[in-house]
Amino acid sequence: MGESAKDVVMHDIKKGVLLDLFKKGERMDGRGFEDYRPVSVKKGVIATAEGSALAKIGKTQILVGAKFDLATPFADRPKEGVFSVNCEFLPLASPTFEPGPPNENSIQLARVTDRAIRSAEVEGDNSITSTFFLEEGKVLALYLDIYVLDHSGNMTDAASLAAMAALMSAKIPKYADGKLVRTEPIGVLPLKHFPIATTIAKIDKYLLVDPSKEESFVADSTLSIATTQTGLLASMQKTKGAMSRDEVLQAVDIAFKKGDELRKYIL
């Protein structure tokens, strides 16, 4: 849908209202600038998946399912397993989501979630996928499917929480006689870093953690930063607009603090 004259006017009105509040140190829903909406994560909600979790941030609800399959390894990495993240914006999740193939926004969400986990848990020594080798030409593939059920702002952080929780709950199936025996799990994933994303919106000179739907609508820029339990940055993604060096560094400090807070919901 293109931007109509009504959208432009509404944008300016909403931004004006929000900025008046920010000047008083307030947000529309009563939160402080660095507060999340209520967060909850429930693991193991889908019995047919090897791992799953439902994460809620405010009214945003995202389900992630983890499934294992057999795969042929990539030619340049014959001992490495496959890790793949896909994302669906279900049309029931928002009046603005339309049925159809993945669009640039759902692809971005899948890839941002993938990058944080890939950087922290898949690349490098002792990665989760290095334990996926089964026999010559056969490895495990792990598929994460992000299902956005209800979109009320900040999908990135909800998807990140649900994805990590689904990985933590995942049971690796036994491999016998060339087949996976899903009813006989042999263990869990050797996760080490637990990357979690924190999204910060910039509106005028204000930095706001966990932007609501309205705040995202008027944001000049948003920056998602995944931090690990081990004190590392695992991935970043900035959308639209500009941020200064100092703003970015300030956002990184906030993300480390908030990442530790969010991780408590899954550990």
Binding site: T48, K67, D69, E88, P99, A141, Y143
Partner: peptide, 18 residues
Amino acid sequence: CRYTMSPFASKEEHSRSG
């Protein structure tokens, strides 16, 4: 009406979305 099944809805292998 659009009815679809998630890729993790079945006990067997992972299927495609949509």
